[in-house]
Amino acid sequence: MSVAQTENLNIVAVDHMPSPEEIKARVPLSETAAATVLAGRRALAGILDRKDERLFVVVGPCSIHDPVAGLDYARRLKKLADEVADTMVLVMRVYFEKPRTSTGWKGYINDPYMDDSFRIDEGMEKARRFLMDVCEIGLPTGTEALDPIAPQYYGDLISWTAIGARTSESQTHREMSSGLSTPVGFKNATDGDLEVAINAIISASRPHSFLGISGKGQSAILRTRGNRLGHVVLRGGGGRPNYDTVSISLAEQALAKAKLPVNIVVDCSHANSWKKAEFQPLVMKDVIHQIREGNRSVVGLMIESNIEAGNQPIPADLSQLKYGCSVTDACVGWGTTEEMIRNAAAVLREVLPKRGEAA
């Protein structure tokens, strides 16, 4: 009598995935890229530790789908970053994984050809190569850590990591964050709850042991030191923004009560802009005004930006895709991005010296 099958009942295939070491061997870390990554991390740590009075701004496409347009954007952003380096550290938003509420394109790693072929093996290598190219331009990168295995493949090319509103409450992501080599921004929950993010920061700051994979792709027990550079990202939620002075004051009080550094990043997109990309400049202007009026807790901002404004559906004929335009959330265009950054820099040049004196 044979034993009944009790596993893999809904698995139709198990395909080989190259190990992190194999992918890194194909796209090895260069000295130039490594220098960019380390400089970016040092700058962000300096801002979070209040040794650097500049703001950091994570700015870029909602998601990467076209590496050619992505590198076009990166070169533009690098020039702008150099222009405002006295007041801001610009980090390119390079998001490869998209958490879907129900269905939809899951991102460049999962489906690089945007045809439901799900060549994750090729997507991972392409994603690593894109990160390498951006870092070799001299621009630090930031991304959202969604799949807990993915950082083993490209984490050496990341300077800042976000944990999204849907995953800040996840113990898996808190444990993973405790071992990441970057500062980590935890977003408040989609209902606006801030306690989720605060608990995540506390959890990630502690050592953890959990299941993961080694560089060779083998199952392993990962034991972490804990990440002291966790911070909160306000993105709005529950039907309202939370970048206003009252919301930020409440966040300051909550962080202080938890005995955490009072470091706040404001996401100008998502619920803070009512999911209307064109409202992002208004959010940023308001937050910069708060800094001018004496706020010291806001250390960073996030902007969803692309070459072209708005977004577009993914067509059946991919040759019909509009160049430099998002296929996920709508973004502000490049001209608006330049205006937002330059206007903020003009204000910050007057304010930051006084902000430092008030420390």
Rank of each mutant, 00 (worst) to 15 (best):
D66L: 00
D147R: 09
G217V: 07
P28A: 04
S326E: 00
N227Q: 13
E338I: 13
A85Y: 03
I303K: 04
V27A: 10
L48T: 07
I303F: 10
K24I: 05
Y113F: 15
E125Y: 01
Y108M: 15
R50C: 15
E31V: 13
L321F: 06
L157W: 02
S219P: 05
S63P: 11
D86Y: 01
T167R: 02
V37Q: 03
S249Q: 10
L48Q: 02
T143Q: 04
C325W: 05
M132H: 05
E83I: 08
N242M: 10
G46Q: 07
G294C: 11
H289C: 14
E339S: 15
L157V: 00
E195C: 04
I303V: 15
V68H: 14
D147E: 08
G310C: 12
W160E: 00
A127F: 06
V298I: 15
G335M: 08
N227T: 11
S2W: 10
S249G: 15
S203I: 06
S170Y: 12
E21K: 01
L348G: 02
D66N: 02
A25H: 10
S2I: 15
V332C: 10
D317V: 03
V184R: 04
G70H: 01
Y113V: 08
T328C: 13
I11Y: 09
W334V: 02
M132E: 05
E308F: 04
E338S: 03
A4V: 15
S2L: 13
S326N: 06
N272E: 14
G155Q: 15
E169K: 08
E22W: 02
I109V: 12
T6C: 06
E293R: 13
I163S: 03
G230Q: 05
L282K: 14
R75V: 11
Y95G: 01
Q5I: 14
H208F: 11
L146D: 04
A39R: 14
D121F: 06
P99F: 06
Y243N: 00
D244W: 13
H208T: 04
L348I: 14
G192E: 09
M92S: 01
G138E: 04
R42N: 15
V58A: 12
P140M: 08
G123W: 02
A330K: 05
Y95K: 02
L352T: 06
G138F: 07
M114S: 01
V332H: 07
R76H: 05
T141E: 03
A74F: 01
